[in-house]
Write a protein that binds this DNA or RNA. Structure first.
Lengths: 202, 202
DNA sequence: CGCTCTATTTTGACACTGTCAAGTTTCGCT
DNA sequence: AGCGAAACTTGACAGTGTCAAAATAGAGCG
C-alpha cells in the first residue's frame, strides 16, 4: 500500500537500528556504540530502540548474529567459486578468507568471539546456535582433512579442530587488537599457519 | 618516624590503588573497575587516584605491566626449577605455564593483550617496552627450537614465532572469553598444541 | 464514519560513569 | 615557625543504560 519507506510508525525500525548500529561500531569501535547515539542517528527518541531490543546486550547479539551469517555466506561461496579444487588448496583459501573477514570487519568479529558477549553467558539463544553451527563447519573441515592425511591424526578430531581454530582465531585477534602483527604480512602469515597445521604436500 | 602504615598522607597510595584495582577486576571483570569504586574501596575521595594515574587508561596500563612482570617471573622460574631438562620437555612446560597463568589471571591477561589498551595505541611507554621484551623471549625460544630441529625451519623464526604464539594466545583467549573450550581439557589442549607446533620426537 | 484496542514511541527520572577546576589540607625542609 | 609543594577533597558537567508512566498513531470493527 505505502510505496515509500514508512509503512508503520517508523517503517522497519529494527532493521534500520541494526544497520546504524553496525555503522556506529565500524566508525568508532564497540565502545562508540551507545543506545542514545544510536537513537539519535536513527532520528528516534532515546528509548525507542528498547522496544525492539530488550537490552544493549541483545542488540550486540543481533549484530554478532548477522556477522556469523555473513561470514558463513562468504565461506560457503568459496567452494562454489572454486570448483574442482583439491581440499589442500581449498583449505588454504578457507583460512585466508576467514582471516580476511576478520580483518575487514574487526568490530563485528570482536562481537562474534569477544568476551563482551560470551564471558557473562549473555548470548542470545539464536546466537549460541549459529555460532555452534559455524564451529561445526570447522570441525567437519578438519575431519575431512584428517581422512585425507592432510592433517595429523595423532589427536582426536575435536582436539585438533580446537587447537587449529585457536591458531586461526589467535591470528585474527592479534591483528584486530593491534598487537605485534602487521597487516601487510596478513596473507603470508595465514599461509605460514596453514603450513604449520598441515602435513607437507606431495 | 611513623611506625604504622601511614608515612605521608595516605602512606603508599599508588601501591594500594594498584592492589585494590587488581582485586576489583578479579572480582567482577574489567568492566567492574571504576575509578570511583576504586577510590571508595581505598577510603579516599573520588579524584584522589588521579594524582597518581593521570587516566583510567594509565591505571589499566599499570595493572597490565604488573601482569607482565609476574608472568615473566613465573616463566623464568621454570628453567630454574627444572634444571637439566631438554628443551623439548621444557618447552611443553613453558606452554602449559603460559596457559595456566592466563587461566588463573584472566582479567589481567585480558588487559595485557586485549584491545582495551592496544587498539587505540594508548599503551604507556613502559608497558610497550615490557611487552616487547616478553615477546622477544618467545622468539628466542623458537629460535632455539629451530636450531635443534624441534620446530620447523621452513619459515623464518619471526613468522613461526608469530604463528605459534598466535596458537597459544588463541587458546588462552578461547578459554578466557568462555568460548567452546573446557577448562578441564586445558592441559590436554596445551599438549595437543605443542604436538602440532613441534616435530615428532625421537 | 467513529470508536476502541494495542503496538509504538516519547518524556521524565535515576543512578552511575570519567574527569576537570578550584579549593583545602598536610608534609618536608630550611 | 613558616614556606613551597605535594596530596587530597569538593563541586560540577556531560555522558551512559534503563525503568515507569504518559502520549501517539495505526488497525480492526461496528
Amino acid at each position: 500500500m505505502s510505496e515509500n519507506k514508512s509503512t508503520y510508525h517508523h517503517g522497519d525500525l529494527p532493521k534500520v537500528l541494526l544497520q546504524n548500529a553496525t555503522e556506529l561500531i565500524r566508525e568508532g569501535g564497540i565502545k562508540a556504540l551507545s543506545m542514545r547515539k544510536l537513537a539519535e542517528r536513527t532520528d528516534v527518541s532515546r528509548t525507542a530502540p528498547y522496544h525492539h531490543f530488550k537490552d544493549k546486550n541483545e542488540l550486540l547479539c543481533a549484530i554478532a548474529e548477522q556477522g556469523f551469517q555473513r561470514q558463513d555466506q562468504a565461506l560457503k561461496n568459496l567452494s562454489v567459486e572454486n570448483p574442482g579444487q583439491d581440499n589442500r588448496q581449498l583449505f588454504e583459501r578457507y583460512v585466508l578468507a576467514y582471516i580476511r573477514y576478520a580483518y575487514e570487519n574487526p568490530e563485528t568479529y570482536d562481537l562474534m568471539f569477544g568476551k563482551e558477549i560470551w564471558k557473562l553467558g549473555t548470548a542470545t539463544e539464536s546466537l549460541k546456535q549459529i555460532s555452534r553451527t559455524s564451529f561445526r563447519h570447522w570441525v567437519d573441515w578438519i575431519e575431512q582433512l584428517q581422512l585425507q592425511d592432510i592433517v595429523s591424526k595423532q589427536d582426536s578430531t575435536l582436539r585438533v579442530a580446537q587447537a587449529s581454530w585457536a591458531t586461526l582465531h589467535g591470528l585474527c585477534r592479534l591483528l584486530i587488537d593491534g598487537i605485534y602483527l602487521n597487516p601487510e604480512d596478513l596473507e603470508e602469515m595465514g599461509k605460514t599457519a596453514v603450513r604449520m597445521l598441515t602435513t607437507p604436500p606431495n
